[in-house]
Design a protein around this nucleic acid. Structure first.
Lengths: 246, 246
DNA sequence: CGTGGCTTTGAATCATATCAACTGACGTGG
DNA sequence: CCACGTCAGTTGATATGATTCAAAGCCACG
């Protein structure tokens, strides 16, 4: 919301030089259209990505042909980082809307680690926060009823959209198909449809074509057994023992 | 297996000084007994941990009382890192066996980032690898049948145990209760029991009390729709653009 | 009287059956 | 791509008993 590099700065204040350096990323600015694939699972890992605008899904293919979406990315997110630990990309990145993003050479990340410890710490803590998000996603995909999963996802998404300033009047754009939703929640698209209609009938949300409004946040929350994320921003560098740094 | 700090060195070669520095961790060596809780969800985040011996589960509590185990940690693993991005710990760490571990002050990590970029990169890539592992776990918890989930977990565990030198004669110790297994796979303990017995009857595995042997690896693999991890070690620092470094 | 070894007891774990509820599969049309 | 039926298969809920394990208590012997 505030800075384009909020995912990094949220933990660690950056020097002007560091910000200037990161801004060079924008030279590799690209656009993509809905349904474009940014990078496919199995591709060599030459780049990571910084999402400027639009929605992107990150998914895994399974040998039986099923697909598991592991994360819905929103503007400001860093994409493709997990695959840095792999020889070949472990995740497919698909554009869910028209998008705008930067491609960042992987070698650039190594240079940043040497030259800007603060950036390194920011990237590191950002990765840890993503791990927390994944753990929570696992917790509701694994345990609750399908209606609960749907509600939990919508709540989480709502909060993330809100933090990105993409919620107006309790409503937001909805580019996901029910097939996407099913692949994300680990259930069939048909059942997703059933549950989505059922949730609609509760009146807690209202679906208006490619737009969704949250009518009763409290009611929505009552459907999910998972707790709202105990996340806290503004921790990290100081906590990490470098108070006056940078 | 090779080095105690394999999780870090697997990506980045470390200088002798760095290794000496990391070895100081051992001064805070501690032991714990089965069922002990190392750290509870909600506790302030003062430390991270390095597991020397034994098994540890990392789990999330949900408001309906259910518990989701998100990872089974084995010797050599780094514990508690995701919570560095949070004010209060987001995960509970429970000893599944008697254990031996080091407690590392969180501030220490920040100092390492400043003084040893190679260690920073190693920790960073290790975190990314953990993200990949979580994504894969999500992919089988979310999608496959309960028997498939069980098989996928056993396969993954087997490979990790093997890498840690904890497999002998295709068999390994089994300290998990069926309740643990259910909490991990997102199903009831009763159903876990059903599926475990069913898997046993296929003959692909043999349960012998607190010990399990894999009889037919290929058969086991045929039960799971998820693909074996496309992981590759020995990537990273060079790839990250610092070839001759350290 | 103190200590070692045996026994009792209770909790935790595993096995199994039955029935209800949830979810997936298939088909059809808008 | 979404809506809506029907039916079959999977999974969850509840109940009950067997078995294992460990801690506490007891007894006999030194």
């Amino acid at each position: 919301v505030t800075s384009p590099f909020h995912r990094i700065e949220e933990f660690v204040p950056l020097t002007p030089e560091a910000i200037t350096r990161l801004s060079l990323w924008k030279e590799n600015r690209r656009v993509g259209r809905r349904l474009d694939t940014i990078r496919r699972e199995g591709d060599p890992v030459g780049h990571v990505y910084f999402l400027i605008g639009g929605w992107v899904s990150s998914s895994l293919l399974m040998s039986d042909g099923r697909r598991q979406i592991v994360k819905i990315h929103l503007p400001g997110d860093m994409l493709g980082f997990p695959s840095l630990a792999l020889e070949k990309a472990g995740e497919t990145l698909d554009a869910l809307t028209d998008i705008e993003f930067c491609a960042i050479p992987a070698v650039e990340i190594g240079q940043l680690f040497e030259q800007y410890p603060a950036v390194a710490a920011g990237l590191f803590l950002s990765a840890q926060k993503e791990r927390v998000a994944l753990m929570q996603e696992l917790s509701w995909v694994g345990s609750s009823s399908s209606l609960g999963r749907l509600a939990a996802f919508l709540l989480d998404l709502y909060h993330r959209l809100d933090a990105a300033g993409m919620v107006t009047n309790q409503g937001f754009d909805w580019p996901l198909t029910q097939t996407h939703l099913g692949e994300l929640l680990g259930m069939t698209a048909i059942h997703t449809n059933r549950m989505f209609r059922q949730l609609d009938k509760t009146g807690y949300i209202a679906r208006e074509g490619r737009h969704i409004r949250v009518i009763d946040m409290h009611g929505l929350r009552s459907l999910t057994p998972s707790m709202p994320p105990p996340v806290a921003s503004r921790v990290g560098w100081e906590r990490l023992g470098c108070p006056g740094k940078s």
